[in-house]
């Protein structure tokens, strides 16, 4: 009897120790959900970035159809991961658009730097009273820089269809 108590106590201690030592800091589900999100950090889902939205989905606070850039395929992927039923994109949060990147009309830019802090991926290059430009390869097309611009010199340009981006399709 005493021996058994001792063994259980030891096992209990071991479990407690393992819990402390091997605790996973990040919720793995949040990480998995976040990996399925497009990382545009555009905030169209009403959260301030992709990770907060992933956290909200994990906590069942947000639905899976609030991410317009992710589109239908993304909703299906989320539904498969979470064992939920796929549903159409909620139009309240916007529509899925063709991929585009921001472009600064350089002769109109006054160098006010107002567009630089909102950019979630530091894709805008510029300094006060200097002309700014967008690094197109880093831009996620989140459109967060459009509204802060006082002279409306930032436009969204659809990504040009080139032979390099071209994909085989059924009708060729």
């Amino acid at each position: 009897m005493l021996f058994l108590c001792l063994v259980f106590a030891l096992l209990g201690l071991l479990l407690g120790f393992a819990h402390k030592k091997l605790k996973i800091k990040n919720d793995p589900l949040v990480e998995q959900i976040n990996n399925l999100l497009p990382q545009t950090q555009c905030g169209q889902c009403n959260y301030i970035g992709c990770r907060p939205y992933a956290e909200a989905i994990a906590k069942n606070e947000a639905d899976i159809n609030q991410c317009p850039p992710n589109g239908e395929a993304g909703i299906i992927a989320l539904a498969n991961l979470l064992g939920k039923e796929a549903k159409p994109l909620n139009p309240e949060f916007g529509e899925q658009k063709a991929p585009a990147v921001a472009f600064i009309i350089e002769q109109d830019c006054i160098g006010c730097v107002k567009c630089i802090p909102p950019c979630p991926v530091d894709a805008i290059l510029g300094a006060a009273k200097q002309m700014h430009t967008v690094i197109a390869s880093e831009c996620t097309g989140c459109e967060l820089c459009i509204s802060p611009c006082p002279v409306d010199c930032i436009i969204m340009r659809p990504i040009e269809k080139t032979a390099n981006h071209w994909q085989w399709t059924q009708d060729v």
């Binding site: 976040n34 999100l37 990382q39 545009t40 950090q41 992709c50 979630p120 991926v121 894709a123 880093e138």
Partner: peptide, 16 residues
């Protein structure tokens, strides 16, 4: 390609 792009954007966002 898209996954690579998303990973890059994620990293830049986290760095920021």
């Amino acid at each position: 390609k898209q996954a690579e792009q998303a990973a890059l954007a994620k990293k830049r966002f986290e760095n920021q």
